[in-house]
Amino acid sequence: MALAIQTITFAQQYTNSWLHPAPKKADQPLKLGVLSSAQINAAAAIHPAESHPDILLYGIASRDNATAKSQARKYRFMKSYGSYEELISDPAIDIVYISVPNGLHFEWASKALDAGKHVLLEKPFTSNAAEAKRLVECAERSGKILEEAFHWQFHPAAHRFREILEDEKHGKIIRTRAIMTSTPEIPAGDIRWQYDLAGGSLMDMTYVLSFTRFALKAGVPPKVISAKARPATHDPRVDSAMEATLLFKTQTMYDVHSTIYTDMKRGWAMGIVPRFWELPSIEVETEKSTIYFYNAMMPHIYHYIGITDKASGRTKYEKCYSGGPQWKERGKPHWSTYRYQLEAFIDKVRGREPVHWVTHGESVAQMETIDDVYRKSELPLRPTSTLAM
């Protein structure tokens, strides 16, 4: 039900923009440029920027000038651009949020960095690990901030989840299982089905690996034990679904078996009922407990962390919409994962220490893991941009 919770987020963000008036902007706020007219922009960048005092909705670009002008009017941007090149060439823009198709991430993120812009880049970071490494080199050369937008990691619920896992009373982690599916299916013709644009369920639903690696504080797994793809009927290079088991090694050097499952065409229960309950989630079994983070992807809408004691069978539930072990007194209960993410991103750009951060190393490790799963499944890696060669 990934599409459903995204729709709910859009509605929630729109409502919050009315219920919680925008604050007065700083004297010299950072100017934001949005690259593309993707549907996710409103929830992921526009409404969060409206509610942040130190960022201004400055410009939005589309490859169609009329679309760009329409989006600028709708969301009250100061400028619109009929090409991506025009936006990144504007010296007034400080930050570029990039939500183009996966296969174009490297091209436009590298060009924005070369133009002297800070970049908040939608996941997945790039098409593959080779591009990821080249993009990191580009960021380091430019001296600008580059971050992969794994927004869920910035929410207080994610921090409380990790805090629970680190509590010694639960014992060592034994295994994990993460799942993300779409029912109804991702529509035919959507860019997520296009191999040349780095489509596929593992690419689009890369959250399952993010959940897993976050829980384990792990890098690249030493081994992908198994990986089985369900190829798309229109193109066998594209994974309609992917199930894999990976062997991770924790920071304290013990092994954990982790299963991930992604599905862009999830069948309905009994063929008639959409699996509306099947939200992106992760279950972690430890020596003494089973810890389940329900709706880890969009915890601002609704979530719970269920902690089941294996000896007694009793389960207690926790929720965390603000504060938590990292944000403490900062943040508000109505803030979305994207708003928390923007708070950290602006802190980083302004030279302050962010509460949480997705490092370059973590993004490269994420893409290396995706590549390893594709290899094990015997599907080809997503194609590398000629600009990265």
Rank of each mutant, 00 (worst) to 15 (best):
I5Y: 15
Q6E: 14
T7M: 12
T7V: 12
A11G: 14
Q12G: 11
Q12K: 12
T15E: 08
N16L: 07
L19W: 10
G33K: 00
V34S: 09
E50V: 02
R63C: 00
R76D: 14
M78K: 15
K79Q: 14
E85D: 15
D90M: 07
I93E: 04
I95M: 02
V96F: 02
S99P: 07
V119E: 03
V119R: 08
V119P: 02
V119K: 01
L120A: 14
F125W: 01
A132W: 04
K133Q: 14
K144M: 10
E148H: 10
A149T: 07
A158R: 06
R162Q: 10
R162P: 04
E166G: 09
K169N: 07
I191Q: 14
W193D: 03
G200S: 08
S201F: 01
M203H: 08
S210H: 13
T212D: 03
K223L: 11
I225W: 05
A232Y: 15
V238K: 03
A241N: 07
T250K: 01
Q251W: 11
T259I: 10
Y261P: 09
R266N: 07
M270D: 13
W277C: 06
I282L: 00
T290D: 07
Y292S: 13
Y294A: 12
P299M: 06
I301N: 10
Y304N: 12
I307M: 10
I307S: 09
D309N: 08
R314M: 12
Y321Q: 09
P325G: 01
P325C: 04
Q326K: 15
G331A: 01
H334W: 15
Y340C: 01
E343C: 11
A344C: 12
A344P: 02
I346D: 09
V355Q: 00
A365F: 05
Q366A: 13
E368C: 04
T384S: 08
T384I: 11
